[in-house]
Design a protein around this nucleic acid. Structure first.
Length: 415
DNA sequence: TCTGGGGTCCTAGGACCC
DNA sequence: TCTGGGGTCCTAGGACCC
């Protein structure tokens, strides 16, 4: 654990919206929303009206009549997000990227080159502003949790340093929902016992907190409230799962609906698994009904898979099972496929065509090999001619998707 | 206020093994 | 042989994060 405040948390402000304002100066100072049907990101001017990410576009327009919708320059988001994180990397190799627009860094080892952490934080903000034209907030503290909270407090376009001597004084006045791990449900439970600040949470006896929130969450929040955060900067992560989902609006729960959607989802997921040579053993599907309740089904195979059609068929069997168990539901609003238990072996390997139940142990090697070769061929064609040039179900779905695939790709984590 | 997509972790019960 | 304990894996659901 660090003894000095050398952990930085850097977070680009209203990232997508800021990029749009930078690319088109006429948008500066104005309420901007990226997206259309759904708001993917809102500028600070739009947030002042109550507009926020995830909100339906219609509702956003009602809150803010002069709201300007822009299409979204997804390639630029990726490029500029990478460039901003790279600025951190110019100071230290100890960088942990959290998402497209956010990262931790530990500057403990480079202060002799660049000065104290506050000077480095200042330099990072200036460089991102000068070189990329984007506002970025930075928090500096002794722990990741505190650095993250500091950057939230610093927003927008600010810098906040938490001195090691003043940590609890800083932390305990803040509302509990600023803590990492306190979302709407936990906030409601804490508020119900009259806990509103992190300081109040810190005063709750451990056993009481664990009874309220469960052993893991209780212990974790109590530790964080007393600023015991042992987490180190981790420079490389391996993903534990990969998935894709698609909101459907309201569609009948019929094969003609779910089959093409599942193929498209399986295609997206399996292609990523193959690209990283990380097949997985557990297939999970999620079906959301009209009332937004959702049900999951999963199966764990004896061998990992990454072939598109095998994944699609297993997903289909699972979805049929869900629908059979909920025969009274005839409208579905979302389908999802996720593959977990990803193979950790680095080397490339062939897919074995395992299916469900009795198929679980039956090789059927010829069918599997044919599918594997077909997938490889499609992967190669796409590499040269683009995703839409060939595929199983993309054409059938073309255009009907609510969110552009470019946006989906931004959210994908490296496997 | 129920709206999009890609992830992580925790819980609880059951099966199974030692 | 009716009585203990520990560990691992699987499944389903929930909360949370960006």
């Amino acid at each position: 654990m660090e003894t000095a405040a050398t952990i930085l948390h850097a977070d680009l402000d209203a990232f997508y919206a800021s990029v749009e304002q930078m690319l088109d100066p006429s948008l500066q100072g104005k309420p901007v929303a990226v997206g259309g049907g759904v708001v993917l990101a809102a500028s600070y001017e739009a947030k002042a009206f109550g507009v926020h990410g995830g909100m339906p576009g219609r509702q956003a327009r009602e809150l803010c009549p002069e709201l300007i919708f822009v299409g979204g320059h997804f390639k630029d988001y990726q490029r500029l997000g990478d460039a901003a994180i790279k600025v951190l990397g110019d100071f230290t190799p100890l960088v942990e990227r959290i998402s497209i627009d956010e990262a931790f860094a530990n500057v403990r080892g480079c202060t002799h080159l660049f000065g104290p952490p506050i000077a480095i934080a200042h330099a990072i903000r200036q460089r991102v502003r000068a070189e990329l034209g984007l506002p970025i907030s930075v928090g500096v503290a002794r722990t990741k949790h505190l650095a993250k909270i500091a950057s939230q407090v610093a927003k927008p376009d600010g810098l906040k340093v938490v001195d090691p001597e003043a940590e609890l004084a800083f932390l305990h006045d803040l509302p509990v929902e600023l803590m990492w791990g306190v979302g709407p449900a936990t906030k409601t439970r804490l508020n119900a016992i009259d806990v509103h600040t992190i300081g109040q949470l810190a005063q709750i006896p451990g056993w009481s907190l664990e009874r309220l929130l469960g052993p893991a969450a209780g212990e974790k929040l109590r530790a964080l409230a007393w600023n015991c955060d042992p987490r180190e900067i981790r420079t490389h992560h391996r993903a534990h799962s990969a998935g894709a989902q698609s909101a459907l609006g309201r569609k009948p729960a019929e094969e003609s609906v779910f089959r093409p959607v599942l193929r498209h989802l399986a295609d997206r997921v399996a292609t990523r698994l193959r690209a990283k040579s990380r097949p997985g053993r557990t297939v999970t599907v999620r079906v959301r009904f009209a009332d937004l309740r959702s049900v999951t089904r999963s199966v764990t195979l004896d061998a990992p898979i990454s072939a598109t059609m095998i994944l699609a068929e297993i997903a289909e069997v699972l979805v049929r099972g869900v629908l059979a168990d909920h025969a009274q539901e005839n409208i579905i609003s979302l389908l999802a496929i996720s593959v977990s238990h990803l193979d950790d072996r680095a080397q490339l390997q062939l897919d074995l065509p395992f299916g469900l139940e009795d198929e679980k142990r039956r090789p059927g090697a010829r069918r599997g090999m044919a599918r594997f070769m077909a997938d490889r061929a499609i992967d190669r064609v796409r590499l040269r001619f683009g995703w839409e040039s060939v595929g199983y179900a993309s054409v059938a779905l073309g255009g009907s998707r609510s969110v552009p695939d470019e946006f989906r790709e931004l959210a994908e984590k490296d496997l």
